[in-house]
């Protein structure tokens, strides 16, 4: 098949990360990400309080995942300079709402609503359940809630793609921009924990992320047009049968070893040999198992690292999610803005 030899990698230029937002326990904001990522897990870190971050208005009836996503979304829009005035309740968008797409990744976001409603029907029949649960029964409620809050009328996509979902979401955000469907894409990764999530994953809450991270992706000309600087640029993406294949394909596509490697959960000491000696970071050691949020968290952290003054390291970072036990491994290369220029 002609053309399919490059199917798994997408040579990309001109997509920048121009804003990062966090709603993570023990992290004060994007500038705190790298410091926090280097610390051991802090079980005493207080949970994110959405009402304290963005006010109570509009949070009633929103599930926890949507609330966390709204916090990270607002922070990323502010960081990118797309909200006019922090003092305003939500701030007015400084660009047309139709120019901004939303892509959210979460695997477990509305599992609690689904299971609780099924329980409620068993216990009391359908008249015993609250109709206010209806929006949350649809898995895309997180993405639409973010769009509604900020008037983002571009394409709106909910990615629920398993262990690789976060990296995949960044890829789809970039793909929309390359296709000309929008000028900017707000990409959010979010997961939470509750009884239902603990049951499905077979893991206690203490091992799981309760938080959200957001990236504002922007076409380079659109960023330049409003005088916005890039934090990092997106490189090629791949989704392959395993970590080894994924890394190999991305190294070929990007033409060299990265300065740092953000590994899939629990993969710090595993192969591939091609990356021996490259600094490895497993963000789940610090933030807990992050499922659909991991890839976005990795990209945000990697981008902040690339934005630091150069220290002689190559200005690229490799991000990978999904191990050989998952249905696939996906990855992306991020580039320092100078290196991509």
């Amino acid at each position: 098949m002609s053309g399919t030899s490059t199917t798994g990698t997408t040579g990309t230029t001109g997509i920048l990360i121009t804003g990062i937002g966090t709603a993570l326990p023990g992290v004060e904001g994007p500038s705190d990400l790298l410091r926090a990522a280097g610390l051991p897990r802090d079980p005493a870190a207080p949970a994110v309080d959405p009402a304290a971050l963005i006010g109570k208005r509009g949070l009633r009836y929103k599930d926890r995942a949507s609330q966390l996503a709204l916090c990270a979304a607002r922070a990323a829009l502010l960081d990118a300079g797309l909200l006019d005035g922090e003092a305003a309740a939500d701030g007015a968008l400084t660009v047309p709402g139709t120019s901004v797409a939303v892509v959210v990744s979460s695997n477990l976001g509305n599992l609690d609503t689904v299971c609780e409603v099924a329980d409620g029907i068993r216990a009391e029949g359908v008249t015993g359940i609250s109709p206010m649960g209806l929006p949350n029964a649809s898995s895309n409620v997180i993405a639409s809630s973010v769009a509604i809050r900020h008037g983002l009328r571009g394409p709106n996509l909910m990615v629920c793609n398993g262990a690789t979902s976060g990296v995949d979401a960044v890829h789809w955000g970039a793909a929309m921009l390359r296709a000309g469907r929008a000028q900017r894409a707000l990409v959010i990764g979010v997961e939470t924990h509750n009884r239902q999530v603990e049951w499905l994953l077979g893991r206690p809450a203490g091992e799981l992320l309760d938080g959200a991270v957001a990236l504002l992706l922007e076409r380079a000309p659109a960023a330049a047009g409003r005088g916005a600087a890039g934090i990092a640029a997106l490189g090629p993406y791949a989704r392959e049968a395993g970590v080894e294949e994924c890394v190999r394909r991305l190294l070929t596509a990007s033409g060299g070893r990265p300065g740092s490697w953000y590994v899939p959960e629990g993969h710090r000491d595993a192969s591939p040999a091609a990356l021996s000696g490259v600094a490895r970071t497993d963000l789940t050691e610090r933030f807990g198992s992050a499922s659909g949020a991991l890839g976005v968290l990795q990209c945000a952290t990697a981008a902040r690292g690339l934005a630091l003054p150069p220290a002689g390291e190559p200005g690229t970072a490799l991000v990978t999610s999904g191990t050989d036990r998952d249905d696939a491994s996906a990855g992306m290369v991020l580039l320092a803005v100078e290196a991509s220029a």
Partner: peptide, 23 residues
């Protein structure tokens, strides 16, 4: 198995699989 990638890999050897949950 909440998303479909696992079954698609088993059945078709597919790995470039994407599940979008868009109502």
């Amino acid at each position: 198995r909440l998303h479909f990638g696992t079954a698609l890999r088993e059945r078709f050897g597919a790995v470039r699989t994407h599940t979008f949950s868009n109502a």
